[in-house]
Design a protein around this nucleic acid. Sequence first.
DNA 1: TTTTGAGTTGTTCGA
DNA 2: GTCGAACAACTCAAA
Length: 488
Amino acid sequence: MPETSSTAPTIVWYRQDLRIGDHPALSDASARGPVVPVYILWDEEEGGWAPGSASRWWLHHSLKSLSADLADKGSPLVIRRGPALKTLLDLARQTGASGVVWNRRYEPAAIARDTAVKAALRREGLTAESHNGSLLFEPWEIKTGSGGPFKVFTPFWRACRAATEPPAPLKAPRTLTPPRQRPSSLRIEDLGLLPRIGWDKEFYEHWKPGEAGAARELSTFLKNVVDGYAVQRDVPAVRGTSRLSPHLHWGDIGPRQVWHAVLAASVNGGRAGAMGKGAETYLKELCWREFAYHVLYHQPRTVDVSLREEFEHVAWSKDRSALKRWQSGRTGYPIVDAGLRELWVTGWMHNRVRMIVGSFLTKDLLIPWRKGAEWFWDTLVDADLASNTFGWQWVAGCGADAAPYFRIFNPVLQSERFDPQGEYLRRWLPELARLGTPWIHRPWEAPPEVLRAAGVRLGEEYPLPMVDHAEARERTLEAFKVLKSAGR
DNA sequence: TTTTGAGTTGTTCGA
DNA sequence: GTCGAACAACTCAAA
């Protein structure tokens, strides 16, 4: 249609939605005419939470995938670097674009920046529209009876289920029309997202960033995993989870696509109408992600400060060498160390183990949750400000619907319960691989001849426990006593 | 406005 | 070994 090809192009500002399917902004723009897709890297506008090292690895590869897909469709991805507003205005001038569309972000710094960008673009005579591409429900759509935000998950979940079903995902545009003026672009390599030293070697064996990788991960999940999800998701030695978190963070796939795929698979596979237990549990987990965004949107200060502010008055430890030992997986508690090594090697940690290492950091070592959040931010490929903040505050006991402060995970019991054969421990702690159960869960209690036979010298190959859990627990309950009367 | 029932993921202790 | 209670009140959400 000559009409369409003569209209001015629309810029699609890509951020955490690196896909072409179910992409409301891309669909909107392509329906109007030519499309200029752009990704802009500019850490200074991220409010101190610019993507960490592992996230940058993911971003690099996800951009590669997106760029190839957009080129196939007909309008290559433009890569730029610079303040968002200035970069968008430059690009509009260079391509004759009449406006900019994007999918919303919900981090406090992003909201402030996007609001300012939208107003400024309109002042310049451009159109500016935002869409929901990253959530099932907008954080302001789900409300309590009196119109406020939720602070407890279960009623939030009920409200989600009672709300209008999230719309069916959008199809990717069949083709894209490029702008007449082909704008200049950096190469993805120019962004310097990949590490200089090769700590990312193993990442390639565990992950395939991008839209195709996400689709494959989802189909494996639906075929082999979701039915047993309710139980298996807690077993770190098996593939019992969806492994979609990094794809969801970067928007390789959208939550609506996941939601509807799970529903469809569950209805087809299960008995008439009744959703499988696994599917139900998984949809609930997807809504935990929504709840984290809900809380972040309504309580933006929580990225820095405990939601229950009296927790700021606990006598937290400043022991930097203890933090280092935790980070490097040398605490002497195998389940804790296995998790932190899995994180270091693969950029990801099993959810059950995240709770265990989180409890250990905040309640055995009494180190502030924020230190754990910062480490996760740098090392996780799925680092997400809403989920990371929420998860850490939950485990520390200071967040929304949090674990009570006296709930302190026992790393040995957890290990024995969720990794009974010690398979997960052996996978990540080769120095203990020859130690049998039950000793691998608590090597310091193993008889000397058992240790000798397994080739383990405690304090050499593997450290002795850095704290005694029972003592640490008492110390922490004591330190948390300030919470009792200090509240409110 | 007041009341009421409920609240992701645990641990420990004593019967 | 198994079971229930205590842990600590408090806040939330809805009636």
